[in-house]
Design a protein around this nucleic acid. Structure first.
Lengths: 190, 190, 190, 190
DNA sequence: TATGAATGAGCGTTCATTCAT
DNA sequence: TATGAATGAACGCTCATTCAT
């Protein structure tokens, strides 16, 4: 019922489908079931919906992680589940992911990117801190900066994986394993 | 004299300056010193110049690496120089980098991305292979997949660093050091 | 106030003046006193206004015929008035007539031509039927197909007449008389 | 081998295929197997080839008539063969016919139309004169003006017939018979 | 004569945004 | 708040024509 929320959801749907350039405001409002003018009561321009979309995407991802990752388990297992979750998420939103980033880049909203990613960084930092407390990763690891590095490498690896329309599943698996090992060594996961 | 090359260079300049949306084909041809129609003799659309730009960017980066990285030196030093080079390069081309990626994403050229990155991957793979031969990194490291991971983490880290218009230099340095350590541990650099 | 009607009228005016190729959509909307984009709310392309123009032209002609032809008079006189009316009409709209036909031919609207001409055919058929009822034309005449033939010969004759920019009036008159006689014999007008 | 002739033939082919607007000079020269610039050695503009095309079309038609119409036969039979020939010819060149007319109309070449049609008019006039000498048509018939009228009605009738993409053959036949009778009555064919 | 790369004026169309209701 | 018809600036692309070779 909340109009703003409906607009964001509709925008996610049509951007995901058509990309930025080929998406018209008229497509968004049609999908949202509202009038063209109404859009501008909630967002000042076509692209100004982007930060809201990005926020939604990150929140969705964090929710998925909360669901898929067993915080009580061994860190190696947590890491594996994180990787699987990020990969799956990116596969679904790959196109949109690039578009949102580009959409923010086109405007002056780009610096909000970090802020939007904050919940993801924070979540990962907490995982690392707890793992360190439980001596499941090396003492030298600095949780906050490592969180950013871990997120960065998982996402860039997933992007490489899903660049191709239909990569063979075993290739993906091989990549995931290499990634897991790489991160485990980096963090001295025991 | 080579028209195609002049177009690519001009496109790099104006895209870097103005972004994609605000760049008109007329801007590109003006910068290249050719007629509007001539552009379409070499590229079929505004965005179809993107792969050529990407290629140019990667080649430029590899040249810089060749110049800045001492292949005879210790691997730890090489790694540091690679990081510094990639960071510097991204600072200069940050905007363009995102734009090219988005530009490829808008069209169906995205899958060419991997192919375009190939020279960078190949170069890095060679470095890792040699380091392994010289026992400067762990035996368990698989050069080819690790090359992709290393490149991915360096670039994503650099992107995070330069997201803000004017990040404090010491913050950048701290990040670089964390990154270096992360990769060194991952590769068991001795 | 009806926008669509205003567009059609404006299009008739500027096409008549300049021909198809030299008419820009911007000319039409300027003449209609509306914005460029508004045109595309009513017609999907520059040429898609053509059928509407053709319809208007035929309706105008039928109105003129209704006015100039005395249905109560002898058929020979009616025929003469029809010829004069069609000639006069074609003189005014000669250029446009060819253009509309060509405009329809360029698109896939050509088959609508018959449909658009229908009012004219119907009117002429009625004239022939009544004349036959009153025994002013031969019994052998089949009104419907003859109507098409009569209209065809009058128009093609008029086109030949006004092919030249300024044909001498007596030449035109001679042609009209030859045409009248031709049709009278064909129909056995008494 | 004659370049000019090859251009005209190529132009006929591509105009017939694509219409005027969608035909580019580059299409014509490609079909003619010559270079772009060469076209302009023979014709001053894209449309200035039109009169030559029209001439070719008329000459082709007259040749067909010479072949199909038995000058020694009864006039009624001649008329029938003329009708059949014109119908067949128009079916093949229907699209081009309208286009050439429109092409001439767009430029200032339109007045050449009569001149181009002259061979057809002359041929028909000869037929009527001979028929009159042999007392196969009425004395009142004036051959020259009647020739124009007969040609006009046959062509307009054929145009009506082939307006539809695929008209039923029996409908066409019915139309031809009505046309034949109409003209026979008009000329008092015995 | 012949070539075909280069030209650049020109235009149809799109679509984000506005505003009277 | 909500509407959606109207706006009009903006631009990618085409293609007839030219001209140096």
């Amino acid at each position: 019922m909340d109009k703003k929320e409906r607009i964001v959801q509709a925008a996610i749907d049509v951007f995901k489908e058509n990309g930025i350039e080929r998406t018209k405001v008229s497509d968004i409002v049609k999908a949202a079931g509202i009038a063209q003018g109404t859009y501008y009561l909630y967002f000042s321009s076509k692209l100004s919906v982007m930060p809201a979309i990005a926020e939604e995407l990150v929140n969705t991802l964090v929710k998925k992680l909360e669901k898929n990752v067993d915080k009580k388990g061994r860190f190696a297992k947590q890491l594996e589940d994180i990787i699987v979750t990020v990969y799956d998420n990116l596969r679904e939103y790959r196109k949109l992911h690039a578009l949102v980033y580009a959409g923010l880049a086109s405007t002056e909203h780009l610096r909000e990117w970090e802020e939007i990613y904050e919940p993801f960084y924070a979540w990962m930092t907490l995982r690392l801190e707890e793992a360190q407390r439980n001596e499941m990763i090396g003492e030298h690891v600095e949780p906050s900066s490592s969180a950013r590095l871990v997120i960065g490498i998982i996402e860039s690896s997933a992007e490489q994986a899903y660049l191709h329309a239909a990569p063979p599943e075993e290739e993906i698996d091989k990549q995931k394993r290499a990634l897991l090992q790489f991160v485990q060594h980096a963090l001295h996961v025991t």
